[in-house]
Design a protein around this nucleic acid. Sequence first.
DNA 1: TACAGCTTTGCAACTTTGTTGCAAAATAAA
DNA 2: TTTATTTTGCAACAAAGTTGCAAAGCTGTA
Lengths: 142, 142
Amino acid sequence: MIVETTINETLRKNQLSVTDSRKKILELFLQTQGALAHSDVEKQTGTLFDRVTIYRTLQTFVEKGIIHTIPTADNSVKYALCIDECTEGHHHDNHVHFVCDECNTTFCLTHVQIPSVKLPGGFTGKQTDVIISGICSRCGNQ
Amino acid sequence: MIVETTINETLRKNQLSVTDSRKKILELFLQTQGALAHSDVEKQTGTLFDRVTIYRTLQTFVEKGIIHTIPTADNSVKYALCIDECTEGHHHDNHVHFVCDECNTTFCLTHVQIPSVKLPGGFTGKQTDVIISGICSRCGNQ
DNA sequence: TACAGCTTTGCAACTTTGTTGCAAAATAAA
DNA sequence: TTTATTTTGCAACAAAGTTGCAAAGCTGTA
């Protein structure tokens, strides 16, 4: 169980009103190891909140830098907490994400170094996202 | 202008019937430097084909390995030709894509080496996608 | 070239996903 | 407690994607 104080503090720090939906959705992310899609949040909160509220809450969290979006090869958008306090300047610039082919969980690998890529002439890179798919530690060790 | 023979051959090689929509959509990809979203194809072909036909054609092309999907940070799916004959085993395993923040074009950088990433213990990577955003050569040189 | 068999297309209807405006409810500050 | 501001839920809508099925189009063979 996550201490409610932590959740409230996080919201206050980000100048957000403390509301039921925000508390519950933030708690969900804190409890979840992997990333969540909008539909996941919707399923896990049942009929507690309106669909629109969930959209707006996720959007707000992204704007405040509490969560970030993850690129996926299919059309789904996924969100994940930035676990490290890399949040300093609210720049979630470089990320490595791991999607398990078996259980379909998305991991945000914060402790992995982003490799630098040589770009062709004239191209200037700002942000690099790496998505690796394969088998995660849980599914591999069975 | 792309030779029609090339298009027909590509379709035949992949055991696909040669139809107007397939010819036209494949031609579009051959003419386009960047990647295309479903909506781009729709706009560029006008009322020539039904929306459903475009969906199905893109899906077929992906299955046959003629094009591949590109992960994006927003929710849009993009498709691009695999230009190199890396198609040998129909395994489009590793890709570097570049999205220009300015003109929003997506480039499939086939000649860029994919860096290897050290994964945490227990994780086994199979496919790596790298998405770099920034300024492309066209927009930078102006 | 014509025909039979198979594949593809277009239509209609539907589901899912995401957005916007606005009044009511909840929260924050005084 | 009261007031000002923020957030929520509803309704209505727009966009994106899917499915079944009959009609039309392709392919191979004669």
